[in-house]
């Protein structure tokens, strides 16, 4: 399998003295949908900045599809599309002009640039807005325009730095569908996000970065399998008069308010055993939800293990 991006011993110290990256090594395979997670200030955006050449690195190597970014500047930039965290387009330009101009920067002739702009603006639901000033777009539309702009030269590797930040849930899910579609079509995607549910839904592999170091780099499946307990909140149909306090091997039930019970399952026990135990107490369950996102639990436990923030 071809490696889409490979970084080795990547380091970055800013003039202020801040050490943002302390020797990161990472590989992302072609076709992957890869999550790069970490708390604020962990070094994710610096990593993306270095790969996209907006940040100069202090040490280490970066290769995109096997080519060194220092010696194959043109081809590595052609292979790369970046959607940054911050809004970074001219607020005074029309939506269509922003995307077409970017196509021009990548050397696409005017006709092809117009075709590609239309294709991606349509796919991202912005075609009707093409003649509007970009500053007039809503937050979600601005994000989608930045995705269209990053895709207009059809890169093989797309890096998205928190693309759904501040985007409502409906729009977020439609963006997920779009990203999954282009990933299935062959585009390798690296995603940073604070929505861990998003990473769990979309990504096959994951790296967690904290204080400038990679503290976890594995497949999403393996990581989630490591989770040996699951906590659920169960809602009863009636007011719970008595205490609910069951503590059996692999099953713990505890009343948390007049209508809710926390169930913690481990050792292979399933949710049916919790519902059956409550049924024996005459408690009927009408709905349930995860207490916390599974990946969130793992993420926090990793950060605690690294001595970082997690509480």
């Amino acid at each position: 399998m071809t490696v889409a991006i490979s970084v080795s011993n990547l380091q970055k110290s800013y003039a202020s003295g801040t050490i943002a990256l302390k020797g990161i090594s990472l590989e992302v395979e072609q076709g992957d949908f890869f999550a790069l997670l970490g708390p604020n200030g962990a070094g994710k955006s610096t990593f993306i900045g270095i790969v996209s050449t907006l940040v100069t690195r202090s040490g280490g190597k970066v290769r995109v599809f096997g080519r060194d970014v220092d010696t194959h500047v043109y081809q590595t930039k052609i292979d790369l599309g970046v959607v940054p965290q911050e809004i970074n387009f001219s607020q005074f330009e029309k939506v269509g002009d922003v995307v077409r101009t970017q196509a021009g920067y990548y050397g696409l002739p005017r006709k092809l640039a117009a075709e590609r702009s239309e294709k991606y603006l349509r796919q991202l639901g912005l075609w009707e807005k093409r003649n509007d000033r970009s500053r007039s777009l809503s937050g979600g539309m601005k994000r989608r325009m930045m995705i269209a702009r990053a895709l207009v030269h059809e890169p093989r590797l797309l890096i998205l730095d928190e693309p759904t930040a501040g985007v409502d849930i409906e729009l977020r899910r439609s963006m997920w569908d779009f990203l999954l579609e282009i990933n299935r079509a062959g585009t390798t995607i690296i995603l940073t996000t604070h929505y861990l549910e998003e990473a769990e839904q979309l990504c096959r592999n994951i790296a967690i970065i904290d204080e400038g170091r990679i503290i976890e780099n594995t497949s999403m499946k393996k990581l989630l399998l490591e989770l040996d307990s699951h906590a659920f909140i169960l809602d009863s149909d009636a007011t719970l008069e008595d205490e609910v306090d069951i503590d059996e091997p692999g099953l713990s039930l505890r009343k948390i308010d007049s209508h809710s019970i926390e169930a913690v399952l481990s050792g292979g026990r399933d949710i049916n055993s919790a519902i059956a135990a409550l049924d024996r107490l005459g408690v009927r369950i009408i709905s349930m939800r995860n207490k916390a996102n599974r990946l969130e639990q793992l993420f926090l436990s990793r950060l605690r293990g690294n001595g970082g923030e997690g509480n």
Partner: peptide
Amino acid sequence: SVEELLVAP
């Protein structure tokens, strides 16, 4: 928006 230029080849 200068970043648009800098990321391009």
